[in-house]
Simulated scan of single mutants.
Amino acid sequence: MLNLFVAAAEVRRRVEQVCEKHDLQFSHHNVLRILRGVHPEGHPRCEIIERMLDPSPDVTRLIDKLVDRGLVRRTTSDEDRRMTIHTITADGLDLLERMGPEIREVQRWFDERVADRDLQHLSRICEGIYTGFQDDG
């Protein structure tokens, strides 16, 4: 388990360095990616929390910062006026596009350290850990 923690921390540190260059935190980048995945639709705060890699205790404040920077837009749901929907803006999409090459470089760095067959095995192991995988034999 310790090796898993150390390896994950190293990968995350590299992604965080890319985020810092663009004045973002890791969690900001995660929210932007989540919202890009459903663009042009959006998500209410509760959906964002469910999809986050590392849910923040104060997601509202985290999203407020993205709204203040013009990277996320907050609107009231047409179906339920009590619900707020968050969508990524053109500026948010542009920022992720600019960050893309640097994020892909971290992915290449990772890929260079793990053989393709081991990547598939590692992925299966990780999925088993977080989904309650039971080995069939």
Rank of each mutant, 00 (worst) to 15 (best):
D58G: 10
L53T: 09
G70Y: 07
I34D: 05
V38N: 00
S27D: 10
V67K: 06
V67R: 08
H43T: 00
D64K: 13
V38P: 02
K21Y: 03
D58C: 02
T75I: 11
P40K: 12
F26S: 06
L24E: 08
H29L: 15
R69D: 12
R45S: 06
L71A: 07
E50Q: 15
H29K: 08
L53K: 05
S77D: 12
K65F: 02
L62F: 04
V72L: 09
V72G: 12
T60C: 00
P55C: 07
R74T: 03
K65Q: 13
G37E: 14
L66V: 06
I34T: 08
L62I: 06
V31L: 11
V59N: 00
I49T: 13
G37W: 10
E41N: 13
L53H: 12
V38S: 03
T76M: 09
D68S: 14
P55R: 06
E20A: 15
E20C: 03
E47W: 01
G37L: 04
S56M: 04
R73L: 05
I48Y: 11
R61N: 13
R74Q: 14
S77H: 09
D68C: 04
D58N: 15
S27A: 11
T76Y: 01
R61V: 03
S77I: 14
I34F: 04
G70T: 05
R61Y: 05
L71T: 04
D54I: 04
D23C: 00
D23W: 00
E41Y: 13
K21S: 14
D54G: 01
I48A: 08
D54Y: 05
T60D: 07
L24P: 02
P55H: 10
H43V: 03
T76C: 10
D68F: 06
S77F: 10
P57H: 09
L66E: 15
V72W: 07
T60W: 00
K65G: 13
D64C: 01
K65C: 03
P55Q: 07
T76F: 01
D54W: 10
R74W: 03
K65T: 10
E20Q: 15
S56H: 12
E20G: 04
P40I: 04
I63F: 08
E47C: 00
G42Y: 07
H29Q: 02
I48V: 15
V72A: 07
P40D: 06
L66N: 13
D54F: 13
R36N: 13
P40Y: 00
L32H: 05
P44W: 13
E47T: 06
I48M: 11
L53G: 10
H39Y: 15
E50P: 01
D68A: 14
P57L: 11
K65E: 13
D68T: 13
H29W: 14
E47Y: 01
L62V: 09
L53A: 05
